[in-house]
């Protein structure tokens, strides 16, 4: 009996967590995907009705805005966070005496809730009293900054706040990567008379391809899931100008009472994430040796 217990202990210990994941992750994904093919409205219905919900999504201007916003936000957010993060990492890698405190400063936004970040930036970007008034005080009286209330520009405020929050994290990733580059190669290049910028461009940065991938994965993941930031900063507005799939889904589920649209938009999000994550996980978990 004890022998049997001992032999099966590892599986038994893992079982509760695994079953929970099976039900709460995979079962729930299945449920949502299933419901996205029904006519569920206020309450879930379980008879399949084909792709009607997806057709509605395709016809929905609001969802189109949400997808466009995700594309704009995703591209700019990933781009700027990566550029700023990499720049900071390279600057910090120059034997800076105050590296510790600086790193702490660059990274602290990552410890904040997106709600806090959104609240702060909402105030800073306030059309009347924020940055605009600072510029007016500085003598630039016709400076106008009303992105927050401009339907065409509001999405860029989300980018500003998002980059502020996440670029420090990208810096931490790259800094760790820079520190793990083989020192001998760098020394060999220095002896060969290669200039420092050249060493970065030709040797160090190319060797950090895996870090770029990691940063891309994390940032794109943050972008797709971004919900709190939009809610706190713009509330999805003006109108639904800054809606993203995540806020769209939430609105459908909890304020519009349209479970079918909520489920189908959630499924679309799931598909986007899967397309990015699965190849990554596959390559990361593939056995590398033996």
């Amino acid at each position: 009996m004890t022998e049997w217990l001992e032999k099966h202990a590892p599986k038994m210990v893992l079982a509760p967590s695994f079953i929970a994941i099976l039900v709460f992750v995979y079962g729930f994904i299945g449920w949502t995907a299933y419901v996205s093919f029904t006519r569920s409205k206020l309450l879930p219905k379980y008879d399949l009705k084909g792709t009607i919900q997806y057709e509605r999504l395709a016809d929905s201007p609001r969802f189109e805005v949400a997808l466009t916003n995700l594309a704009i936000f995703g591209v700019l957010f990933i781009l700027f966070a990566t550029i700023i993060g990499l720049t900071l990492a390279i600057l910090l890698d120059q034997k800076i005496r105050t590296e510790g405190p600086l790193r702490t400063i660059y990274l602290y936004p990552m410890a904040l809730s997106f709600i806090v970040t959104g609240t702060a930036w909402k105030w800073i970007l306030n059309p009347g009293l924020g940055i605009e008034s600072v510029m007016h005080d500085l003598g630039w009286t016709d400076f106008a900054f009303n992105w927050l209330v401009d339907p065409n520009l509001a999405i860029y405020t989300v980018v500003i706040a998002g980059v502020w929050q996440s670029s420090g994290f990208v810096m931490a990733l790259f800094l760790a990567g820079l520190r793990s580059v083989d020192n001998e190669v760098i020394r060999a290049a220095m002896v060969d008379g290669v200039s420092t910028p050249r060493i970065y461009m030709s040797i160090i940065i190319p060797s950090m391809a895996p870090i770029f991938l990691s940063a891309f994965i994390v940032l794109s993941h943050l972008a797709i899931k971004s919900f709190d930031l939009v809610i706190a900063l713009t509330g999805g507005g003006p109108g639904y100008a800054t809606d993203m799939p995540a806020t769209f889904m939430y609105a459908m589920a909890f304020s519009r009472g349209d479970i079918g649209q909520a489920a189908s938009s959630a499924t679309v999000m799931m598909v986007i994430v899967t397309a990015i994550i699965v190849p990554y996980l596959y390559s990361e978990l593939r056995p590398r040796h033996d």
């Binding site: 079962g27 949502t32 993941h221 797709i224 589920a253 959630a266 999000m269 994430v273």
Partner: peptide, 11 residues
């Protein structure tokens, strides 16, 4: 890595 929106309704 899943977007949690996909589990909110059944949850």
């Amino acid at each position: 890595f899943i977007p949690f929106q996909v589990v909110i309704l059944p949850m």
